[in-house]
Amino acid sequence: MPDGATFRKARPGAPAGFFGCEAAGLRWLGEARRPAAPGGPTGPRVVGVRGVGEDHLDLERVVPAAPTREAAARFGRDLATLHDAGATAWGSPPPGWWGDAFFGPLDDPLPLATGVWDTWADFWGEARLRPVAGQGAERGALTRADTDALHRLADRAGRWETGEPPARVHGDLWSGNVMWTASGRVDDVEAVLIDPAAHGGHREADLAMLALFGAPHLDVVLAAYDTTRPLARGWRHRVAVHQVYPVAVHAVLFGGGYVGQLRQMLDALLA
Score class of each variant (00 low, 15 high):
61 R>S: 14
61 R>Q: 15
62 V>H: 00
62 V>S: 05
62 V>N: 06
63 V>I: 13
63 V>C: 12
63 V>W: 12
69 R>D: 13
69 R>S: 14
70 E>D: 15
71 A>D: 07
71 A>G: 12
72 A>Q: 03
73 A>L: 06
73 A>Y: 01
73 A>P: 02
75 F>V: 08
77 R>A: 14
82 L>K: 04
83 H>W: 03
83 H>C: 05
83 H>A: 06
85 A>I: 03
85 A>P: 02
86 G>I: 02
88 T>N: 11
88 T>D: 15
89 A>K: 03
91 G>I: 04
92 S>M: 01
92 S>R: 02
96 G>A: 02
97 W>G: 11
97 W>M: 12
99 G>I: 10
99 G>P: 11
99 G>C: 12
101 A>N: 15
102 F>P: 09
103 F>D: 12
105 P>A: 09
105 P>R: 08
106 L>W: 10
107 D>S: 14
107 D>A: 14
107 D>L: 13
108 D>W: 00
109 P>L: 07
109 P>Y: 07
110 L>Y: 01
110 L>M: 07
112 L>R: 13
113 A>T: 15
115 G>T: 09
115 G>I: 01
116 V>T: 15
117 W>G: 09
120 W>Y: 14
120 W>T: 08
121 A>F: 05
121 A>Y: 02
122 D>N: 13
122 D>R: 15
124 W>I: 11
128 R>N: 11
129 L>N: 08
129 L>E: 04
130 R>L: 11
130 R>I: 12
130 R>S: 13
130 R>G: 12
131 P>M: 01
132 V>I: 09
133 A>N: 11
136 G>H: 01
137 A>T: 11
138 E>C: 12
140 G>I: 05
141 A>L: 06
143 T>P: 10
144 R>E: 14
144 R>F: 13
144 R>G: 13
145 A>D: 15
147 T>W: 00
148 D>Y: 05
148 D>S: 14
150 L>G: 07
150 L>C: 12
151 H>Y: 14
152 R>Y: 09
153 L>M: 08
154 A>S: 11
154 A>Y: 00
155 D>Q: 13
157 A>M: 10
158 G>H: 08
159 R>Q: 13
161 E>H: 04
164 E>L: 13
164 E>I: 07
164 E>N: 10
165 P>H: 09
166 P>R: 00
167 A>R: 01
167 A>W: 00
168 R>F: 00
169 V>N: 02
169 V>A: 08
171 G>K: 01
171 G>Q: 07
172 D>Q: 03
175 S>R: 02
175 S>K: 03
175 S>I: 04
176 G>A: 13
177 N>G: 09
178 V>Q: 05
